[in-house]
Design a protein around this nucleic acid. Structure first.
Lengths: 227, 227
DNA sequence: AGAGTGAAAATTGTATACAGTATACAGGGA
DNA sequence: TCCCTGTATACTGTATACAATTTTCACTCT
């Protein structure tokens, strides 16, 4: 076990600090590190089998990503995701994805539209099989497609860092009744807007699509808070 | 001199890594560290009179802020700001500030509008005195006002980290002929939109205002690239 | 009992030491 | 001349050691 871990560290990440950041993100997502919990550098480092130095560098990264809250000389605590956080993130996400759609629409060609249709067809297949995990991944590909096609690299990266913070909630939101179909239908309208090269419409539809995701996530958030 | 430096480190920053980040940002802004230049941790740390540990933690921060580009096992280099970077930043900034104006408009009251008018009057005074530095600061206060009033803390912080990257260019752009007057005139229209509680108009005007700033910065960028 | 105090333990911040990797350059061969 | 290769050097990545600060908790005094 320990040897496999070592191999994974080396194979997938040339740098320990990145592997550690991934590991800690994962521990937060899986609930192994709970919101509000204080992170003791010494202990966590030894648990991960590394020294404090790469852990500390990973903590700086996770701080800017919003996973941890660091108080000088008192260490890092796992940040809780509140409704307010989710709202803030989605407000920004809606504006940014909308912007990316508008920008992408300007230099979208037939092939791009075809690719989006393929993805949406695949989504329909996965919806029938009720495969939440794969649907989620493919769904992200749909959105990533125009985020990248926008030609604005920062836009894509910013969006990544935003959705990473609510990864778990978003995944959960796809277990809601009718969520698949709703998303697919909206995607179809978005594709039509791209086909017509209607940048303004694409922007509006994508923004609305994001805010639908917001409502789904909020629903799920309230369910889990009660539980 | 060295003693004063020590005092400053302690007084204004309880943490060395933050002081270092500020110092390095400053060195980049002042041209002491030039774009493309490789940062040797050992040398820079000893120049700043500290060890490599806090410097390395500062480098992680400056990397996410976009000031440095880090290649694994080859270290950090100072990132150059290209026209593409400026375009990416302003596209995002326009969308984010526009969003903040829309959000802020919903719960703006008379007092808020009065405050914006005061700031704009002050801007007019500073324009007459041709005080670029103070105009710049006051101008930022104008925009910060509704970024904060939006109630979306992330929006404000994200905007801060964006404009920090182009601080120098923005400041320079205010030396352009007619830049003051243009800004003040647009601010007046924005204030009127807030007065009317017209969120959609406020959003559009603020976006346009940002993109005017973009054009000014691009003009200045081209001037300095030639020089 | 409760507030206050002070020493001990735990934890973070910083410096240094060591290991591994990339770069530069000299020397040899085609 | 050009390319290849091996070695020396410089630099980054990681671990560890030390310093400073915060927290804990027993103890005292009111």
């Amino acid at each position: 076990m320990a040897i496999n871990l070592e191999e994974q560290k080396i194979r997938e990440h040339p740098l320990l600090r990145e592997w550690v950041a991934d590991a800690v993100r994962d521990m937060i997502a899986k609930g192994k590190l709970k919101p509000g919990e204080h992170i003791c550098e010494t202990r966590l480092a030894s648990e991960l089998g590394i020294s404090r130095t790469p852990l500390r560098e990973a903590i700086r990264l996770l701080e800017t990503e919003g996973f941890l809250h660091v108080v000088p000389r008192r260490g890092a605590v796992v940040r809780d995701i509140s409704l307010k956080d989710v709202t803030e993130i989605y407000e920004i996400k809606a504006a940014m994805e909308g912007l990316s759609a508008r920008l992408a629409a300007h230099h979208f060609n037939k092939k791009d539209v075809e690719r989006l249709k393929e993805i949406n067809n695949e989504l329909a297949r996965l919806a029938e099989k009720n495969d939440v995990n794969r649907f989620f991944k493919m769904h992200n590909q749909f959105h990533d497609y125009f985020l990248r096609a926008s030609g604005n690299e920062r836009l894509y990266l910013l969006n990544c860092s935003l959705i990473e913070q609510i990864h778990r909630l978003r995944l959960l939101s796809f277990t809601l009744e009718g969520r698949f179909e709703e998303a697919i239908a909206q995607h179809e309208r978005i594709i039509k807007a791209f086909e017509k090269r209607d940048a303004v419409l694409a922007e509006r539809l994508v923004s609305e699509n994001v805010m639908m995701g917001y409502r789904a996530v909020v629903t799920k958030l309230k369910q889990t808070k009660v539980a």
